[in-house]
């Protein structure tokens, strides 16, 4: 066992070997799982991509079938994000830099709790409480701002519109987004904040100079998380939205583009054969969209991280 003149090799212990292998296997397991999701969905979706597939009159071809739902999915999520992002930043700032410590702890707890409310409950609340509440406002918007195409058209009598869905989705993603942004804001180096204040900055100037630049990647990743949840949100949309398979930008009418996820939930239980495959294909589509958006978000974060002075 003596190697003369050789390098001193570190002793490879069995425990180390087993443990590191186990860890790598777990890591690879993640990759396998993800690949399996794509592969199994693809296998089940394949029959629908056959040009001779029979959708029993429910769809002409996969592309024209899924297009309105892709639009609806993106549209609803973008509305939700447009509403939720400023609010989430506001809440996070309020909790991290405005409210006192005790109060902010309670708020943090409430946020955690709300993040876990099942989407079906948001759906019930959306259709029974929120939609009737918003409807008068919609009528007002349509009467006075109807010249804006978004508010044009025949207003739904029930309030179950794209805008309501956007608001419900925004409320749903708010707790998660706010919690994440809050975490990042709280990690702002104390020294940066105090330095800014010492220079005579007002609280807002301190936030602008120290907190926001530091938190920007956090804000973007929270948007990504929020978007991911909004894109895939199923039950709340299925319950609240009055759907149709058309592309419609109007926010207040009965005819709203349905989302992929809600469309699957509505039709999957009563589907069979090629039509079921078509629904699974639309699920695969949703999967690819969320994946693309995730990649884009990561790309943005990695680019921004280089320029932000933090870390």
């Amino acid at each position: 066992m003596t190697t003369l003149g050789g390098q001193v090799k570190p002793k490879v212990r069995l425990g180390d070997l087993v443990f590191s292998r186990a860890a790598s296997v777990a890591g690879i397991g993640i990759l396998i799982t993800l690949a399996a999701v794509a592969v199994f969905l693809f296998i089940q979706a394949l029959p629908a991509l056959n040009p001779e597939a029979d959708f029993s009159g429910k769809a002409e071809n996969p592309i024209s079938y899924v297009t309105p739902y892709v639009f609806g999915t993106l549209y609803g999520s973008i509305i939700a994000l447009a509403i939720a992002t400023p609010l989430a930043i506001g809440i996070a700032l309020y909790i991290s830099h405005y409210a006192n410590r005790r109060f902010s702890q309670i708020l943090g707890y409430i946020m955690d709790l709300l993040a876990a409310i099942p989407s079906v409950v948001y759906g019930l609340w959306g259709i029974m409480v929120l939609a009737p509440f918003l409807n008068p406002t919609y009528l007002w918007l349509n009467e006075n701002l109807g010249w804006i195409p978004l508010f044009a058209g025949q207003v739904s009598a029930t309030g179950r519109t794209m805008l309501t869905v956007g608001i419900v989705l925004a409320i749903m993603v708010l707790p998660i987004m706010a919690a994440l942004i809050r975490e990042v804001f709280l990690q702002t180096p104390r020294l940066h904040e105090e330095a800014a204040l010492a220079l005579g900055a007002t609280r807002w100037e301190m936030i602008k100079m120290a907190v926001l630049p530091f938190g920007r990647p956090g804000i973007i990743s929270s948007m990504m998380l929020g978007l991911g949840r909004a894109l895939g949100e199923t039950m709340a949309v299925a319950l609240v939205l009055s759907p149709a398979s058309i592309i419609n930008f109007a926010l207040l009418t009965s005819q709203n583009s349905n989302t992929i996820a809600a469309n699957i939930a509505l039709h999957f239980p009563e589907s069979g054969g090629d039509y079921r495959s078509l629904l699974i294909a639309s699920g695969l589509m949703l999967f690819l969209i969320t994946m693309l958006i995730n990649m884009l978000a990561r790309y943005i974060i990695s680019r921004r991280a280089e320029f932000s002075g933090a870390n």
Binding site: A261, I264, F287
Partner: peptide, 9 residues
């Protein structure tokens, strides 16, 4: 990417 998998998927 997996974090973003929609639950219905």
């Amino acid at each position: 990417v997996m974090t973003g998998i929609p639950s219905i998927v």
